Simulated scan of single mutants.
Amino acid sequence: MLQELIVALIVVVALLQVCRRYLPATLRQRIVYALARKGFDQERMAKLFKTQSSCGDGCGSCGSCETKTAADAPQDTKAVRRVITLHVQR
């Protein structure tokens, strides 16, 4: 019985590690928000999932819900290119 509990605890910790490392940030934020709605501490869950605690709850502190007006839009309309560096090992 004790061995099964220890194995279950190890599996839960491994799942948490995979979630916080490999899930996209938006999905981690949704998980934190869902757990906060179920009664868990949002600050603590945000630390566990390495995300901001205020995203998804509509508080307006992160600015992601705000719409940009024409005055706030950047003057330069060129697309920004991101370069992904590949390291080839031969």
Rank of each mutant, 00 (worst) to 15 (best):
A73R: 15
Y22N: 11
T77G: 00
Q89N: 05
S54A: 03
L2T: 12
Y33M: 07
L2M: 07
L15Q: 03
L16N: 09
L5Q: 05
L9T: 12
V80E: 12
Q17L: 14
R30P: 00
L2A: 07
K38Y: 05
I10A: 14
D72F: 08
C19I: 13
Q75G: 12
I6K: 10
Q75K: 11
K50V: 11
Q75R: 11
C55D: 03
L35V: 01
I10W: 10
A34V: 10
C65Y: 02
G39N: 03
T77P: 08
K50E: 08
Q17G: 01
L35D: 01
V88H: 15
G60H: 01
K50Y: 11
Y33R: 12
R37T: 09
L9D: 15
D41V: 09
M45C: 07
I6N: 11
V7E: 15
C65W: 02
I31A: 08
V7K: 12
L86A: 08
A14T: 11
H87G: 08
S64P: 00
D41I: 01
T67P: 01
G39L: 02
F49P: 05
R82V: 15
R82Y: 15
D41T: 09
F40I: 04
V32C: 09
H87N: 11
T69F: 03
F49D: 06
A14L: 12
A79N: 13
D72S: 14
M45D: 03
L2S: 11
G39Q: 04
D76H: 01
V12P: 00
G56L: 03
V88M: 13
